[in-house]
């Protein structure tokens, strides 16, 4: 039995407070839905729990089975059993899935995983998620479709066997059939390992495929309402305005910003002699 406990969590990014006092407890075998309009703190909460360096915790506690998570580096959080399936998984050119997954598995073992065991484990997960068999030799997420990237996140979750998994819009980019495959893999893994889950999704359909035990609504950086699966259904038909009105909370409107990517430097089409 594992417990992730969050108390009065305040988080800033670039000086702006996003989370304004979140309390949440997640235990093994529980499945928590985290809902709310974009820009109100759902992804921030998951990233802060995982230790993303851009998110600064200014107040509050995160503990996992009594251990202070805030003081742990990111990789230690993974090794104690936390997992974040990301909304935008990174493409890591040059690093094969095989090397990456082996390194990730070996980071939590005292001796390297035997090659045969690794291949068998990977093949099983690839088949379960109906992924392409050449996955091991492809670079991490490079050239993957949106759906493939999300399946790859779930594949990593299956291999790493976390105690608490956080899935951030893992259903976006998946078509109806793929969503069923992913949902089925999540449920199978949850039944096998008793892991707890925090799932961020905007779609009632996904919560039908992965029925939840708890539902929380985040507005303006706070969990303002908690309930059960019925709350998902009501939000699906009525939206969030009624919650904002009932609890006197202002819904934060998301401001879309273009992500900053790697800088490319160089000269273009130089037309000159003398370089030969």
């Amino acid at each position: 039995m594992s417990t992730l406990n969050i108390k009065n969590l305040h988080v800033e990014i670039e000086g702006k407070e996003i989370l304004k006092g979140v309390d949440l407890e997640v235990n093994s075998q529980e499945i928590h839905a985290l809902m709310g309009p974009n820009g109100n703190g759902k992804s921030t909460l998951l990233a802060a729990i995982m230790g993303h360096p851009k998110y600064v915790i200014t107040q509050g506690e995160i503990t996992f089975d009594g251990q202070n998570v805030i003081e742990m580096p990111v990789n230690e959080r993974s090794k104690i059993g936390l997992f974040l399936g990301m909304q935008y998984p990174m493409e890591v050119a040059g690093v094969t899935n095989s090397d990456f997954l082996k390194a990730a598995l070996n980071s939590r073992r005292t001796s390297p995983i035997p090659l045969f065991t690794f291949i068998r484990t990977l093949e099983k997960a690839v088949n379960m998620l109906q992924m392409k068999s050449d996955l091991a030799h492809r670079y991490v997420n490079e050239g993957f479709s949106g759906g493939e990237k999300k399946r790859n996140e779930i594949l990593q979750m299956i291999l790493l066997e976390p105690k608490i998994a956080m899935l951030d819009e893992i259903d976006s980019g998946l078509d109806v059939d793929a969503m069923k495959v992913v949902a089925s893999a999540i449920l199978e893994q949850a039944a096998k390992t008793q892991m707890g889950l925090i799932i961020v999704s905007h779609y009632e359909r996904f919560y039908q495929l992965v029925p939840v035990t708890h539902v929380h609504v985040i507005l303006d950086g706070k969990i303002v309402l908690s309930g059960n699966q019925d709350l998902v259904n009501r939000i699906d038909t009525e939206g969030y305005d009624w919650i904002a009105q009932a609890y006197g909370v202002q819904i934060v409107k998301e401001i879309k910003t273009r992500p900053v990517t790697a800088t490319s430097l160089g000269t273009c089409a130089v037309k000159e002699r003398g370089m030969e």
Binding site: N75, S78, K79, V95, A103, A104, S107, R108, Q156
Partner: peptide, 14 residues
Amino acid sequence: HLYYLQSRGLSEAQ
């Protein structure tokens, strides 16, 4: 990229 790999258990050096 570093954060992504670290979030799967790899140390910064790894």
